[in-house]
């Protein structure tokens, strides 16, 4: 059980409904230079616009009191495969240092921490197609337990060539893959200011159960639960909360 927590900022980046499963237009915050963006992973670049918008909406300043929880199902698979391919083809001695740092699941959390000076609580969680919901629960628990006063919860997943090949091997259509990013800012339970909505509960088991057994839904990805949550909070047309997430407006 978690206490009701205010959601003071929310932002989402997802393909247009019925459109391509890859997000082709990413507009990073203008204050980051090209040199910084060149070094940032594609997943990090997907996360930047939503983090920027959510923090702005929440009027949240970075500091040790602002925690960060990132959820991702597969992390940056292209970087992981690229790194391992380099090791396989050229040997360990010639492995790419930059691909290595972007290949780990916590790379996005690291990039966001550096770019936004987030020096507090920092956690990356992964739980398959329920990674977004798992991140939301972890963020809520971090605030409820006092590990941080406020928490930025981010979920991000991408489509890679390797993922499309793996899905094809398993008999899935390419449309089964999707990508997206979402960010929510959770405040403390005694928050007195304005809030977009209040998070009242996250049941990760219910979220997982909803994805189990059935064929992969169109555009499925680990961050999808948080993307759908953010879309519902922002009252985007046709948006509905995913199973397991309880929100009060």
């Amino acid at each position: 059980m978690i206490p009701a927590l205010p959601i003071t900022g929310a932002a989402v980046l997802a393909p247009e409904p019925g459109g391509a499963q890859r997000i082709t237009r990413i507009e990073p915050p203008a204050r980051f230079s090209k040199a910084v963006l060149r070094r940032t992973s594609r997943l990090g670049q997907l996360a930047l616009p939503v983090v920027e918008a959510a923090l702005l909406q929440a009027e949240s300043t970075a500091g040790p009191e602002l925690g960060l929880v990132v959820g991702t199902g597969l992390a940056d698979l292209d970087e992981t495969i690229g790194f391992l391919q380099g090791v396989h083809e050229r040997g360990e001695r010639f492995a790419s240092p930059q691909m290595f740092q972007r290949s780990v699941h916590s790379a996005v959390a690291g990039e966001l921490a550096i770019l936004y000076h987030l020096t507090g609580y920092n956690l990356t969680v992964t739980q398959g197609l329920a990674s977004g919901e798992a991140a939301l629960l972890a963020a809520a628990l971090a605030v409820a337990s006092g590990r941080c006063e406020r928490c930025l919860c981010v979920a991000v997943d991408g489509v890679s060539d390797a993922l499309l090949m793996a899905l094809a091997d398993l008999g899935h259509a390419p449309e089964a893959a999707g990508e997206g990013a979402a960010a929510l800012v959770l405040g403390p339970p005694d928050h007195a200011g304005p809030a977009l909505a209040w998070l009242e509960g996250v049941d990760v088991a219910a979220a997982e159960a909803a994805t189990r057994g059935a064929d992969l839904p169109t555009g499925a990805h680990g961050a999808m639960g948080l993307v759908r949550t953010a879309q519902a909070i922002l009252r985007e047309p046709g948006a509905a909360l995913p199973p397991g997430v309880e929100v009060r407006w």
Binding site: A35, R39, R90, R93, F94, A95, S96, P97, Q98
Partner: peptide, 17 residues
């Protein structure tokens, strides 16, 4: 070109190979 020390590390590996 705006390179930094991390770029040099990557470049060094590429040059050696």
């Amino acid at each position: 070109l705006g390179l930094d020390s991390l770029d040099v590390l990557e470049l060094a590996v590429a040059l050696e190979y």
